[in-house]
Every structure is written in C-alpha cells, then in structure tokens.
C-alpha cells in the first residue's frame, strides 16, 4: 500500500472521500486502528488530526478520492498507515505547497505542512493533471 508490508492477519480498508461526512468517517476509522495499534493518546491524536487535514485536502483540492488504511510493520515495529489518493489537478509546486501558510484555496495553509509534522513517515507523489497520493505512517513506540 505505502510500500510497507502489512501486519499478517490484518486487512486494509478503503473508503471513498466524497463528502464532509466521509472526512468524519475517515477520522473515526483512523482512530479505531490507532487504538488497536496501541499508539499513545498523544500519538493517536496527532495521527487522527493529520488524517483529518489530508482527508479534507482530498475532498477540497483533489475533488474527492479514497483513503486506504491499514496496520503495517517494519523492523519489528507496528504502525498505522493511511494513504490518501485523488485524481485531481495535482500540485504544481510541492515546495510551495509544503510551506506553512501557503494555500491555493481558502484555508490556513497548515494542512500539508502541519500533517507532515504530526506523523513519523510522510510521502507525497503528485502529477499535474492526474492526481496526488499522500501516505502517512505513525509507529507505535
């Protein structure tokens, strides 16, 4: 999914993000998995907040898309990965988009840069005209 092996015996889920309600549902699913992964309360809150920012970006800037979610493992550690994918306009200037305070819409410009600070792993792939994929992972300590 994000290039990381899944935890055996667990399944990845996919949900569509087409409305504000889906953003709420995305948050709830991420929270459920973060609890199952035994992330600390602060880490759960950080991951769910990052997911909320990214799900809203998928909806507002990407014109809707999907979130894929699952437990992954690396070096004996377990983590929660969430991948947000849209077929929207893509991001022409990634450095600019990752800058605090920069926004192409009406937001605060903290979504992408803030989400990156809140997670352990963050990867962004984008192509102008075909879409954006952002994968985030938080590892249990």
């Amino acid at each position: 999914m994000s290039g990381l092996p899944p935890v055996p015996g667990t399944e990845h889920q996919t949900i569509t993000i087409e409305s504000n309600d889906d953003v709420v549902r995305a948050r709830q699913l991420v929270r459920g998995l973060a609890q199952r992964c035994k992330l600390s309360l602060v880490d759960q809150t950080k991951l769910v907040t990052a997911a909320s920012e990214l799900a809203r970006n998928t909806l507002v800037y990407g014109g809707g898309g999907v979130m894929r979610l699952g437990l992954v493992q690396r070096d004996g550690r377990t983590g929660v990965t969430a991948v947000f994918e849209d077929s929207g306009p893509g991001i022409p200037d990634i450095d600019q988009a990752m800058t605090d305070g920069w926004t192409s819409g009406g937001g605060l410009g903290l979504g992408l840069s803030g989400a990156r600070r809140l997670v352990d792993d963050f990867t962004l792939e984008t192509e102008v005209g075909s879409g954006t994929q952002i994968a985030v992972t938080k590892w249990a300590r």
Partner: peptide, 9 residues
C-alpha cells in the same frame, strides 16, 4: 493542545 501547537496553530 500538544497537537495544535505542532500543527502550527
């Protein structure tokens, strides 16, 4: 509070 400050707000 911790998350908000880290987010930049």
């Amino acid at each position: 509070a911790i998350t908000l400050v880290e987010l930049g707000l």
